[in-house]
Amino acid sequence: MLAGAALLTTAACGSGSAGTTTASGTKPKVVAAFYPLQWLTEQVGGSDVQVTVLTAPGVEPHDLELGIQQVTDIQNAALTVYIKGVQPAVDDAVAQDTSFDAVTAVTTLPAGEHAEEGEEAHTVSYDPHIWLDPARLATVATKLGERLGAADPAHAQAYKDRAAKTAGALGTLDQELAAGLSTCKTKTLVTAHEAFGYLSDRYKLKQVGITLDPEQEPSPARLSEVAKLSKAEGVTTIFTESLVSPKVAEVLANEVGAKTAVLDPLESKPSGDYLSAMRDNLKTLQTALGCTA
């Protein structure tokens, strides 16, 4: 009902909310759907925008249900930054003329292909986890700078400059990941759910997800399949994540004779920020995959 109300109200408001916000002399209100987009919006928007995030720290983004205040925030925003396919409630609430679907800025990868009965991991045909490839996120930063400049022309150059700076920082991170993962003994990445397709594609790793959906338990057949593959390819670590129960990964690790480690998909705010969390992921991967310095 809330999503339906959001659609009706945003259709009535159109782009008028954005115009009123920027014309009044106050900072444009920008809504980010979840953490990586919040971080990116804060970097590009800087002090010229007010950023609100829909998904609280520690909350699994895929499970988000919008409250009345969040729907109101979307309606009143100059721009809502989201990724279609991650949060259906947000997909339903945004208005086309005051939203930026970050996935439209990059080339996508297809969604995983081993979905089991009952799994509903994504509502789109592509993998939406684009933020785990810094190179793609740099492209999104550039486009976001353009969209913010269109919503707030008085600060267009500032947005463009900050977007370029952010893209540069992401480019540096990309180079570090490429160098750090180029000499790994093992290239197979066994993860609790298939969130790391873009990272694997970018750095020539092979992702094997136990499930497509972090909320679904895999079938015995799927566990057996992944265990057999893990043994054959010498996998020593099964990756889990902080917002998902490690139970299934631990069962698989015991079967394979491996250990578990946390690999952060950055769907929620980490202890540091996006850049430091990705560098922590790099260290975790280097240890688990036997990468030489």
Rank of each mutant, 00 (worst) to 15 (best):
A151R: 15
F34A: 04
A33Q: 09
A261V: 06
Q96K: 15
S268F: 05
V106Y: 08
P153M: 07
V248T: 02
A105D: 13
D273P: 06
L109K: 04
S276H: 08
A277H: 10
V94Y: 08
E120R: 00
T123K: 05
E42C: 10
T123V: 10
P61R: 07
Q50P: 02
G25F: 09
K231R: 10
W131N: 09
G67T: 11
L173N: 10
R279Y: 07
A141Y: 13
G25D: 06
S271K: 09
F196P: 11
I74Q: 04
A56I: 03
P28T: 05
V235P: 04
L148M: 13
V81I: 00
E60C: 02
Q38G: 01
K143N: 09
S17Q: 14
C13W: 02
D273C: 10
G112R: 10
L64R: 02
E215M: 04
D133P: 07
A151E: 12
S15D: 10
G257F: 02
S268T: 14
A89H: 13
G171I: 09
L266P: 07
T284H: 03
D152H: 14
E42Q: 15
K84S: 15
L40G: 12
G85C: 04
E42T: 11
Q50R: 11
P88G: 13
G234Q: 06
R222F: 01
A102G: 07
A95L: 06
K185T: 15
K29Q: 12
S224P: 01
D152S: 08
Q87Y: 12
T166G: 11
K143Q: 15
V251H: 01
G112T: 04
A33M: 11
A253Q: 01
E241C: 01
T22C: 06
T186Q: 11
G16T: 13
G46I: 03
D101G: 10
V71H: 07
K283Y: 06
D273S: 06
K204H: 15
D280Q: 14
H155P: 07
A141W: 10
A11D: 07
P265L: 04
A227P: 05
T41F: 02
Q69W: 00
C184G: 11
T166D: 08
A151C: 00
T22M: 02
E117V: 03
G14F: 03
